[in-house]
Design a binder for these strands. Structure first.
Lengths: 233, 233
DNA sequence: CTCATTGTTGAACGATCGTACAACAGCAGC
DNA sequence: GCTGCTGTTGTACGATCGTTCAACAATGAG
């Protein structure tokens, strides 16, 4: 009883009824994008339980077998979804910052974009957290993470560097930022940002997005003051 | 064929061999603790995949059925493990802070404990992250989170309050902390702390624990200066 | 020793998981 | 209309999931 698999004959098409296609073929690229979108949507709705081939294919409105036609296995689909998710976030923040003129305005726009929809959303954090949970034990996820996280830190660091350089022009020192360690400053701001983001998503009632922006700006102000050498006078 | 289940007769005990008990009975409390410890160990080793009844029971050295004898279902076991994990962390930090004398030393001890083993460990973060991934869709997890997170923030807030009060004695103002919003300050420090912790665990090579402590202390120093009213002179 | 209590076992169940694959069918080219 | 390519379907499979439950056995009480 292990012979080649057969399939039941499909029901005879209803005569007199306009024959509609049962599905539409799509270009692999479009279909891949749709499957990635469905994966993220499932993560938002059902958390880690949403990471199942059947749930995702149902969300995308396709059959179970299609996923393995476009992705070699589930891990690669999840990694592709993670990559897309990451890329959208970083690109969105980068674009928001680029729309402003001065370094200070760019940083402010970056912070406000970080603490506004669609980024500041409990669903979004839920997706992140599921990905992080896979991080330790999934090589593809690790690869994507190291690729995009570097971009993110570089963005924050660039924004800070521009701000400090401008401030230094009217300040006392120059060069390495007036004794301020730019590397540590970027790490600190990133941490404060991510921490506030995380806290807000876990308990949205504890503080307001405006307050989070204010905390970050206060931190940057203190940094600028130190860069200008206020404390050595 | 749905009659009552029977079991195969056990193999006859080897004659002449000292008969050893096949298992040892334990008090429910001890067994529960062992199962919780096994759950956390599995999470550290295998991530979310470790959250299976069979994996956990194997880790604990018991049979699959025992878990449901001590816990009504898997969710309750996981919630109990989360609660224990949370409690150990908060109690450990609280104890570390309590060992110091002055408010400043207490805060320093708290920070250093936060950025030292066993808290600063990639395995530990992996466990956290799996729990967070369950947060949105598990009522028991949410219950535990709201119970212990409040304790944590209260601890940070208390440490900050003591520090600011002491500083205010020799400062210019008193009462509400010299214009400093204690609620926001506690939120900010918690966020900075958690963010640095998260970043270090994700990419331990980017900075050193000592630098994380320094960043936090710098943040607190700036806060104290503002509380003392340096900027209104 | 006997007996009752109850912590413990492990097979069985039905559900669901990821993947494989043979057949089907949409659609462009003729 | 016909043909070929290939995107798509849906069943089947074996593995593993959480849970149940009747039987077993460790242990204290008598």
């Amino acid at each position: 009883m292990k012979g080649p698999r057969t399939r039941a004959v499909p029901a005879a098409p209803n005569p007199g009824e306009a024959r509609r296609p049962r599905f539409r073929r799509q270009l692999p690229e479009q279909r891949r994008a749709a499957l990635i979108a469905a994966t993220i949507e499932c993560l938002k709705r059902y958390g880690h339980d949403g990471l199942s081939i059947r749930t995702i294919s149902a969300q995308a409105g396709v059959s179970v077998g299609l996923i393995n036609h476009h992705f070699p296995n589930k891990d690669e689909l999840v990694a592709a979804a993670f990559s897309h998710f990451n890329r959208e976030l970083v690109d969105g923040l980068k674009a928001a910052a680029a729309r402003a003129a001065s370094p200070a305005a760019r940083l402010r726009a970056f912070l406000e974009a970080s603490f506004s929809p669609p980024n500041l959303d409990a669903d979004v954090l839920a997706v992140w957290v599921v990905f992080w949970g896979l991080y330790r034990h999934s090589r593809p996820i690790q690869r994507v993470q190291s690729e995009t996280y570097t971009d993110y830190v570089r963005l924050v660091r660039g924004l800070l560097a521009d701000l400090l350089d401008k401030g230094a022009e009217s300040g006392r020192r120059r060069g390495k930022g007036g004794g301020v360690n730019l590397r540590l400053a970027a790490i600190g701001l990133t941490a404060l940002l991510d921490g506030l983001w995380l806290e807000w998503c876990l308990e949205p009632g504890k503080f307001r997005p405006r307050e989070a922006v204010a905390l970050c700006e206060g931190w940057v102000e203190a940094l600028c003051r130190r860069a200008a050498g206020w404390n050595s006078a």
